[in-house]
């Protein structure tokens, strides 16, 4: 039982993960992920036919509240953490030419 993760797969996953890996990091990721998946494959020893996937241990339901503003205006303080801001907004590199 062995998983071979190709470098193409690593490139694809890096796009999903929004990571820009160096060639060395890609090789390391290929090795790490193959090892981890080999290990995770142990779960296939168990027959889970008919078992419902359990995302939460308790029955959780959405918690709703009235759509009213409950907090004060923290915008200045919040923008204080922004790497760049302009006119009360987060500033990012140009996205539209």
């Amino acid at each position: 039982m062995s998983n071979t993760i190709t470098l193409e797969t690593i490139d694809y996953v890096a796009i999903l993960a929004k990571l820009d890996l160096t060639p060395e990091e890609k090789l390391q990721a290929q090795k790490d992920m193959s090892n981890m998946l080999d290990y995770i494959d142990k779960l296939n020893e168990l027959d889970t036919t008919g078992v419902e996937p359990m995302s939460h241990v308790f029955q959780v339901t959405n918690v709703f509240r009235e759509d009213v503003v409950a907090n004060g205006d923290d915008s200045a303080a919040i923008l204080g953490n922004a790497p760049a801001s302009k006119q009360g907004m987060f500033q990012v590199p140009r996205t539209v030419e």
Partner: peptide
């Protein structure tokens, strides 16, 4: 991010893909 964090983000992105 450091290498352990990236390792888990990569694995997580893979198992959810």
């Amino acid at each position: 991010f450091g290498s352990e964090v990236k390792r888990r983000i990569m694995l997580g992105s893979f198992v959810l893909s």
